[in-house]
């Protein structure tokens, strides 16, 4: 059984507000979650759900109101633990007077690497994220996508065991997104643990061994994308062709495109529906299980959650 890379226990973050800071808004409420070693874990939720708050708490950029967390068995207050962590902030911004090579060299200096090792790693990382030709340009001249690449490079520069990425696909074009996906998969092949937050659900479905869904500061579900979706998925879709007209009652529920119809029925009603359609003169083209996407599961949660609005307000604060 793999060990735990990240353990989060009852993590809570409240922000005081008002003139005397007497009122409080809860951004994260009693989060309990584990990320296993070697897995790619997706942390998904709408804007303001508490994803970045959780990551910032793990990185000690903000401090919890209650609860604790451990990374690789060590408390997050241990600064030396950061040798084993790579972190890409959301919408990263770096020292714009530095070039990409200088920035990476600067960060590498905190990891006690020799000058030769630093140089070799900086070159390798720039090549990996496709910035070797822009290595001598100051970051103030970089596009958002290029900054995201520099951010990725600095996150994996020191060969960390755990890589935490906050919205890594944000601001990237389709090619850039695919490159980031490739890097995440490569990290997984190398045995690294990757935790990333996103609200692009197709990326999470494609990359993650497990996902955690957070809405309104509360964790609503953790599991493999398929498992989470199966909990909410029932139904079959029948695609059929029907020329002419028919009075079959099921036709009123079908969606028509020319002579083709698409009809969704419950699994237990499938055979009765097929019999009825065939009796009406329809030709069955295909029958497929309707598998709800992670997006539908996620949307259902968000819509069912009345706290979504307030969570967005907290983020806006």
């Amino acid at each position: 059984m793999p060990g735990l890379a990240i353990e989060i226990e009852n993590l809570t973050k409240e922000y005081p507000f008002g003139f005397l800071h007497l009122k409080k808004k809860t951004s994260l409420e009693g989060l309990n979650m584990q990320v296993e070693t070697g897995e790619v874990f997706g942390f998904i939720g709408p804007n303001g759900a508490g994803k970045s708050t959780t990551i910032k708490l793990l990185m000690r950029l903000i401090f919890p109101t209650a609860g604790s967390a451990r990374i690789l068995g060590k408390p997050i207050s241990d600064v030396e633990m950061h040798r084993d962590i790579g972190y890409l902030p959301e919408q990263p911004y770096f020292y714009d007077y530095l070039t990409a090579a200088e920035l990476l060299d600067y960060f590498a200096r905190f990891h006690d690497l020799t000058a030769a090792d630093r140089k070799e790693r900086v070159e390798r990382m720039l090549k990996k994220v496709g910035l070797e030709t822009a290595r001598k340009i100051q970051l103030r001249k970089y596009s958002k996508g290029m900054l995201q690449r520099v951010g990725l490079a600095q996150a994996i520069l020191h060969d960390p065991k755990i890589v935490i990425l906050d919205e890594p696909m944000s601001g990237l074009d389709p090619v850039g997104r695919r490159e980031v996906r490739d890097i995440i998969l490569e990290l997984k092949r190398e045995g690294k643990t990757v935790m990333f937050s996103t609200h692009i659900l197709s990326d999470a479905e494609m990359l993650c061994d497990r996902v955690g869904v957070i809405v309104g500061g509360k964790l609503r579900g953790v599991g493999a994308p398929g498992t989470l979706v199966d909990m909410k998925t029932q139904g079959m879709e029948i695609l059929f062709e029907l020329r002419g007209t028919s009075n079959a009652p099921l036709l009123s529920k079908a969606t028509r495109t020319g002579d083709c119809y698409r009809l969704q029925v419950a699994e237990e009603e499938l055979y009765a529906a097929i019999d009825q359609l065939r009796a009406a003169g329809a030709r069955i083209l295909s029958v497929a299980q309707v598998k709800a996407t992670l997006e539908e599961f996620f949307t259902n949660l968000v819509e069912a959650d009345g706290t979504h609005t307030s969570a967005v307000e907290v983020s806006g604060k």
């Binding site: 600064v79 890409l88 902030p89 911004y93 020292y95």
Partner: peptide, 14 residues
């Protein structure tokens, strides 16, 4: 303000 600190403090820097 510019949040350049975020990436820096992710390194082993007190």
């Amino acid at each position: 303000d510019k949040r350049t600190l975020h990436a820096l403090l992710a390194n082993p820097v007190r």
